[in-house]
């Protein structure tokens, strides 16, 4: 049992790239009106399409205090990251300037519990794209 779980971790513990997971914004709203609000502040009433954004986050975060994530969206002018299970969903807004080599960035975030991390990208033409990653945040048995 330990063996299979460890293998599951080896397979799934690697950074996971999800670009085509549909975002159910209604679902996000059901989790927390704040998440929907945060997305609305960024995207207004625009349609947020799925795909075109790569969001990398661990499937299982060893510690919710420091979770490495990476996001990339070709041609995006800016990207909003929100965490739908945090007391306040805003994580960071990434704005890419004239000299950015790519619309991509990596950072480390705090997640209060298992939840979805959502990336909304504003493209240069004003349209919006998105991706979502489900992250399990473990509670340690002894040291955590």
């Amino acid at each position: 049992m330990d063996l299979s779980r460890r293998h599951a971790l080896a397979l799934g513990g690697a950074a996971v790239t999800i670009s085509l997971i549909p975002i159910n914004l209604a679902q996000a709203a059901a989790h927390s009106g704040k998440t929907a609000e945060a997305i609305k502040m960024f995207a207004g009433d625009a349609d947020v399409a799925e795909g075109g954004v790569e969001l990398t986050a661990p499937e299982i975060a060893e510690n919710g205090n420091t979770v490495p994530i990476a996001v990339s969206a070709d041609g995006a002018a800016s990207i909003l990251i929100v965490a739908d299970g945090n007391p306040l969903p805003d994580v960071i807004t990434l704005n890419f300037g004239e000299l950015a080599g790519s619309s991509s960035a990596s950072t480390r975030i705090r997640l209060a519990g298992s939840q979805n991390v959502v990336a909304i990208a504003k493209m240069a033409d004003g349209s919006f794209k998105s991706a979502s990653a489900a992250v399990k945040v473990t509670i340690g048995g002894c040291g955590g």
Binding site: L88, V91, G97, L99, A100, G101, A105
Partner: peptide, 27 residues
Amino acid sequence: TFNGTEVVNFTPAGAISANPFFEFTMK
């Protein structure tokens, strides 16, 4: 900024971990 021109401009919120780490690219 590079020679005065913006490369990136990030607005972190409270959910960014302590000792913030950022990685990005520049042309």
